[in-house]
């Protein structure tokens, strides 16, 4: 009778040689220690900052909604307007770009152009784009609207293109076999398959855009972020706390609202 081994170890998958594995682990550890050492923390400043932090937290605990209410209200309306318009315009532009960036529908040259547009939009972070548009078009919500529209294009078009590439090809083949034109193919075979996800993504982008509107306001692109920035500059942490609470509240509502709607649509 043959005897079989009673122990088994998972064979190494990536680095087959033991020396490589140990060397790599030592290298990563050394890099980490050196990197940590190079971050020089100013401890006096950190201790002094604790006091400011405490005031900030106290502002949160006693948020002041009233004394700056008209500013807050103005900022909120501006932010919501920016969010709404940029989401709609962004999606309207994303749809043709998304279709163009789907390998299974677009001819090669169109595909590369659309993919490049998406890559540019995704490579630039919102704050950087906002700084650029504020420099071009001045302070205010118009720069914010353009920034968010630009960011929405990269996000929606990329995910839409991926969804289109993942459709059930047999349905498209059947529609093509009836003698349908390209537009009819999109309308009858592609749209029904990607619509639920497109609606879900749009709602998701809506709440991302609202959150981003608060961030880009800090660099001058209008909205509730500008109001928040002003409050912090004036050391009015109680008003700042109120603004942050409102932002958290609206993001929560948008989050739950959109997840509920998405579930309903499936």
């Amino acid at each position: 009778m043959t005897s079989y081994p009673t122990t088994w170890k998972r064979p190494p998958q990536i680095f087959k040689h033991r020396g490589w594995r140990i060397g790599l682990q030592i290298a990563v550890l050394a890099w980490f220690v050196l990197a940590i050492g190079s971050i020089d923390a100013n401890w006096e400043r950190i201790i002094a900052g604790g006091e400011r932090g405490l005031r900030f937290v106290q502002g949160f605990l006693q948020p002041d909604f009233t004394s700056r209410w008209s500013d807050i209200r103005g900022g909120l309306i501006e932010s919501l307007t920016m969010t709404f318009t940029s989401t709609i315009v962004g999606i309207a532009i994303s749809i043709p770009i998304g279709i163009g960036a789907a390998r299974n529908l677009a001819p090669r040259p169109v595909y590369y152009v659309c993919r490049s547009i998406i890559a540019v939009s995704r490579a630039l972070q919102e704050v950087i784009v906002a700084i650029f548009f504020v420099a071009m078009f001045g302070f205010g919500p118009f720069a914010g609207f353009l920034t968010l529209t630009f960011a929405t294009i990269g996000f929606i078009a990329k995910l839409l293109a991926e969804d289109i590439e993942g459709i059930d090809e047999s349905q498209a083949e059947a529609v093509r076999a009836t003698g349908a034109s390209w537009l009819q193919l999109i309308n009858y075979a592609v749209q029904p398959q990607v619509m639920p996800r497109l609606i879900g993504l749009s709602l998701y982008r809506f709440d991302i855009n609202f959150r981003e509107s608060a961030v880009i306001g800090i660099v001058g692109a209008g909205g509730i972020g500008a109001t928040l920035n002003t409050a912090i500059d004036r050391y009015e942490y109680d008003s700042a706390g109120a603004i942050l609470l409102i932002i958290i509240g609206i993001v929560l509502i948008a989050e739950y609202g959109s997840s509920y709607l998405r579930k309903f649509l499936q």
Binding site: E173, T178, S181, Y188, A189, P192
Partner: peptide, 23 residues
Amino acid sequence: FQEYALVERLTVMENVLSGRLGY
């Protein structure tokens, strides 16, 4: 087709009418 290849999210009527797309 083998797996029917109907457009699943469209109604039965739309699927039948899609035979007219070329016309």
